Structures are given as C-alpha cells and as structure tokens.
Computed example of a mutant assay.
Amino acid sequence: MSEQILSNARIVLEDRIIDGSVVIRDGKIASIDEGKSSTGEDFGGDYLIPGLVELHTDHLESHYSPRPGVRWHMTSAIQAHDAQIVTSGITTVFDCLRMGSDEDGGFDKGEMREMADAIQAAERDDRLRAEHLIHLRCEVASDNVLDHFADFENDPHVRLVSLMDHSPGQRQFQTMDQYTLYYKTKRGLTDEQFSRFVESRLSLSQKYSAVHRDALAKVCAERGITVASHDDATLAHVEEAKGHGVKLAEFPTSFEAAEASHKSGMSVLMGAPNVVRGKSHSGNIAARDLAKRGVLDVLSSDYVPLSLLHASFVLADEIDGISLPQAIAMVTSTPARTVSLDDRGRIESGLRADLVRVRRTDGVPVIRSVWREGRRVA
C-alpha cells in the first residue's frame, strides 16, 4: 500500500479550517487528523485545499488557435494548456469545444472531434497531469450545430453541454452598443458589412435556436449529460432553462435571471476574471454583486486559469458573509456536485486525493504543490 502524510497544514474543509494532517493511501484520502505532527511532509502552516474543478474554460482554444487563421499542433497545444491548468491548482478540467460555425469563423466539422481524440490519446500516453473531460459549447443558432454534435454521439468524456445563442439584442448582447463594439469595431467591419452580419445572425437565430435547444436538451437527458444555459437575461430565459433540465446557469447577464436561477436550484456560474477585475469585460453584471446577494455558486476561470484560485481569496477577503471555505467550495465541491462528480472536490475520507498546497500571506496566492489521486503532478 502506498501511503503519504501531509502534515501541519491549514486544512480547508467545506465548513471550517482546521490545523492538522491528511493521510493519503492508494490515491485516496485515508484520514484527517487534527493537531501537530512530526511525521510526513511539513506544510509549515500552508493551506491544503481540494483540487480545483473547472467547468468552463476556453483556454485550450487559445493554445490551438493562437492567432487568426493559425492552427497549432494539437498535442503540443493540449500539453501547454494542461501544464498551465495544473500549475493553477486545477485537477479536473472540462475543456470547452465549440459546436457550430458561421460566417464569423469557428471550426470545421470534425476538427473538434480530432481535438477530443488528441486529448484522449494524450491521456493514454500519460502526457497529461489533470483529468480532462469535455464541455461542448453548442451555438444553437448555427445551422450546423447538430452535425458537429453528432461527432460526439458515443463519447463518454462528454459530461457537460451548454446551450448558447450569441445573436444581437439578447442574452450576452442585450444592447446593440455591446454587440457593435464586440463584432463591428473589433473586427473592423464597415457599416454595410455589419448590417448584413446582424441580419444574418438574427435570421439564423429565429430559424434554428428553439429547435436546436429542444433537440440537444433531449439528447442530453437521454445520455445523462449535465445541461447548462448560457447568458440568461430574463425570467423567460430561466423558465426555458428549467424546461430543458438545466443544472448550471452560466454567466447570467441580469440580477433577476441570476436570482431566479439560484432559487430554482441551478448552480449560478460567473467568471473568476470578473471577480478579480471587479467587472465584466462585456459590460454585464459584476460577479461580486451576485456574491453579495448570496446567489453566486460556482466560479470559472474562463480565459485565465490562475484566476480561479485568486478569485476565491478575493471573495473571502472582500465580501462580508463569505468565508474562505465557502469561497473555495465555489471552485471545488459545488462544481463537482453540479456535474455529478461525487468522488472529488472535498477533503474527506474515502474521496480522491486531489489536493493543492497553497501559500498565501497577502495578495495573489502561490501554489506550491498539486496532487491528483495521490500522485504529485506539480
């Protein structure tokens, strides 16, 4: 039997912090003991927290397509992504793969299937240190989203599917000012080009969104895949999400949608970069304001992996009523439970020994070591 002892740590449990030691045996947490110890790896008072569980990150995409029109070697991109994920304390990551493309770009049919195959091959070759699962981001207004989704029909790694519509005048882009900045200004479109672009997006949304939402939600229910809504803005959006069996409300764009989602039993997810920056990059609601109202459940690193742990400490420092254990739960136990991963996310006897050693006296926390199933991976 393989045994390790991590001693003299500040152990962050779900409801409190204790000083003590954790015994790891055969990749699982065997026991948790309070008090000082003279055996094992001495943490010297550093925090010991569960490995972080990341449900929504576009980070892999930035490694694979680092410049417009550039495609990097898939295995190399995956390894670079994995290295940054693990050294940010993330031991379980849901890699977002985009389903559906349009005149604004995206990936060809089969391209994301090839990426998923490359991730699984890298795992078999023991190239990766975090556990990688798949989150399919389905653009329901795209005419080819179901064709792309069909490539994952029998893939057990798909554990989360989000239903999203980035058409103008709703959800993420409730005003045309936001949409114009994001699509016209940043892409350098002329007035005529932008007008055609908006007209096409609205037409596609009207034709396909409802039909594709229904079809995808039905398949997910049959396969036991967790469903997420995306950018809900109104009570009608929340009711629609409830009808589709949604368990995760990603990035709601209004207070009323966030509160209604939380009260209905969905886990409300917001971006950790939003917490660290104190505002949304697209001008929507601030995650800290949802935390103050008690309706923020899960954080996602979105596009900055280290922000996940950083934001947890920001919330514990700056939001009255949120303790460090409660903030850490937003990046560990709550996301794990939301997607039915009940074997991780907490420091508890019998669970996976996915653990992170964190030193933090002030400012940005420093990750000292990471274990996945008892194996030191960073």
Score class of each variant (00 low, 15 high):
V366T: 10
E256D: 15
L52G: 04
V161Q: 03
D362W: 07
E250A: 04
K184N: 03
L306E: 03
K242N: 14
G271P: 00
D342C: 04
F94A: 00
I85Q: 10
G110A: 13
E348F: 05
D342M: 06
M176F: 08
T253L: 02
L306R: 10
A249L: 02
A249P: 01
S203M: 11
D343Q: 12
H281W: 05
Q120N: 06
H63M: 01
R360C: 08
V219P: 00
H73Q: 13
K36F: 14
R137T: 01
Q206E: 15
H281G: 03
S340C: 10
D117M: 10
T180R: 15
G169I: 07
A286W: 02
D26M: 09
S7Q: 05
G40V: 11
L55W: 02
K28C: 07
E256M: 14
M1F: 11
A210K: 13
V331M: 13
R10Y: 08
V158W: 06
A272R: 01
D117E: 14
A150C: 03
L309I: 13
H132L: 07
D46N: 14
A233N: 04
Q326E: 15
T226Q: 05
E14M: 08
E14L: 10
R187Q: 15
R124T: 11
L299F: 10
P66E: 06
A291W: 03
E373G: 14
S349K: 14
A217V: 05
A353R: 03
V275Q: 02
S282P: 03
V219W: 13
G363P: 05
T175M: 13
L204Q: 15
A353I: 11
S21W: 08
D82K: 12
T234A: 11
G224Y: 13
K242Q: 15
G283K: 02
A130V: 07
F194Y: 15
T190G: 11
R113A: 14
R67C: 01
D297W: 02
D177Q: 13
R376W: 08
A241F: 09
M1Q: 10
V298S: 06
F173Y: 12
T91V: 09
L269P: 00
T338C: 15
E54H: 07
S340Y: 12
L202H: 07
L290H: 01
D125N: 14
H212I: 01
L309F: 04
Y183L: 02
P156M: 02
D165Y: 09
S7G: 12
L189Q: 15
P50C: 09
V356I: 09
D42C: 08
D26L: 11
G51F: 04
D232Y: 12
R288E: 12
D117K: 12
H81A: 08
Y47V: 07
P156K: 03
P252V: 06
E3D: 07
P335I: 05
Q84T: 12
V358M: 13
T226N: 06
K184H: 05
G100I: 00
F251P: 00
S142A: 15
R359I: 03
R127N: 08
C220A: 11
E103N: 13
E131G: 08
D33R: 15
S195Q: 12
F43W: 14
P68C: 04
E34F: 00
G110F: 10
